[in-house]
């Protein structure tokens, strides 16, 4: 109980929401609660899950990264181009591309002290433009180096191979956040920036590494997106930044910083995917599903404020600790 009362209850919201959504769509759509559909959802969540885990690092230091969708699109496209030139393994070059974008964001936020929203808005626009420029105005780049459909869709032990790889990366994120110094310092910076300086940490560098992790995960998501589609899609990923923020926040990442759990974010991403798939199977228009995602984003924000309000026992939800620097 002590663990719940110190605020860990926020991490149980996502699993509870998944159960509620499963029950709801199980009633609304007869095809929903079937093993096939379960496998379909399990093979689809990984792009969003990778983006959301990356976003979690940025939110944990009281920031945002609204460029993740564009970074994923650019790195996926460049990865495909590299793979076509050098062979399939070069698709993984998407990772350093994402890391580079994350480094730019991190330098701007951490060292140059830009507001996260300004810095990532600037890179969002620039990266979006670059993705269009490298492909000659937004043409999809087909992946000719090899067939990745098997890796992306055929189940091995219940998940497609790329799903296992993504799960491995997410497990690595858990180790980084919980057991490595950099992760502990990221959480510390989010909950008490002054304390980091007092124990000898360098806030600017830690903030930068949070955005670098975010960019690296966006790069991985881009590679996965390209492998699934069999092409680099320079215009894909618009709207993914919103879903990733929603997934991270539903997964209990505090917008005020300093609180995050990787498994809960994974649950948050699963929740968003369950809602999207459930609406699809209920025969709802995809445009209506977009409205639902918008509502989920706002609901996640309300949940965060509500939890902060309830758990801190404040009579006044106005706090000087802002999420928008």
């Amino acid at each position: 109980m002590t663990r719940l009362s110190d605020g860990s209850v926020r991490f149980l919201v996502a699993p509870a929401s998944i159960l509620a959504a499963l029950a709801l769509f199980g009633i609304a759509a007869p095809d929903f609660l079937t093993p096939d559909n379960g496998f379909s959802i399990a093979s689809q969540i990984w792009v969003l899950a990778l983006l959301a885990v990356g976003q979690m690092f940025a939110i944990a230091v009281r920031g945002f990264d609204i460029s993740v969708g564009a970074v994923a699109a650019l790195s996926g496209t460049l990865g495909v181009m590299a793979a076509n030139a050098l062979g399939l393994p070069a698709l993984l070059l998407a990772l350093p591309v994402g890391l580079a974008c994350g480094t730019v964001n991190g330098w701007l936020v951490g060292h140059a002290r830009f507001q996260p929203i300004v810095a990532t808005l600037g890179t969002l626009l620039a990266v979006k433009g670059l993705a269009l420029l490298v492909t000659g105005d937004g043409q999809a780049v087909p992946l000719t180096a090899g067939d990745t459909a098997g890796l992306a869709f055929d189940a091995v032990l219940g998940l497609p191979p790329l799903g296992w790889i993504a799960l491995g990366c997410i497990a690595a994120a858990h180790v980084v956040l919980r057991h490595l110094v950099v992760g502990r310092r990221i959480l510390m910076l989010g909950s008490n920036p002054e304390a980091v300086g007092l124990v000898g940490g360098r806030p600017a560098r830690i903030e930068m590494s949070a955005y670098q992790l975010c960019g690296a995960f966006a790069g991985l998501a881009g590679a996965l997106m390209a492998a699934r589609a069999g092409a680099g899609l320079p215009t894909e990923g618009a709207g993914m930044e919103l879903q990733s923020i929603a997934a991270a926040v539903i997964g209990g990442t505090a917008l005020a910083g300093g609180r995050a759990q990787v498994w809960a974010v994974l649950a948050g991403a699963s929740f968003v995917q369950v809602v999207l798939t459930g609406l699809n199977l209920s025969g709802v228009s995809p445009f209506f599903a977009q409205i639902a995602v918008g509502a989920v984003i706002i609901a996640s924000g309300l949940m965060d404020t509500g939890l902060r309000f309830l758990l801190s026992g404040l009579s006044n939800p106005f706090q000087p600790k802002g999420t928008f620097r």
Binding site: I66, G239, L242, Q290, I291, V293, G294, I298, S300, G301
Partner: peptide, 12 residues
Amino acid sequence: PPVIVTLGTLMM
């Protein structure tokens, strides 16, 4: 946070 709200209403 305004970012969350206006991105949400953008989507909606």
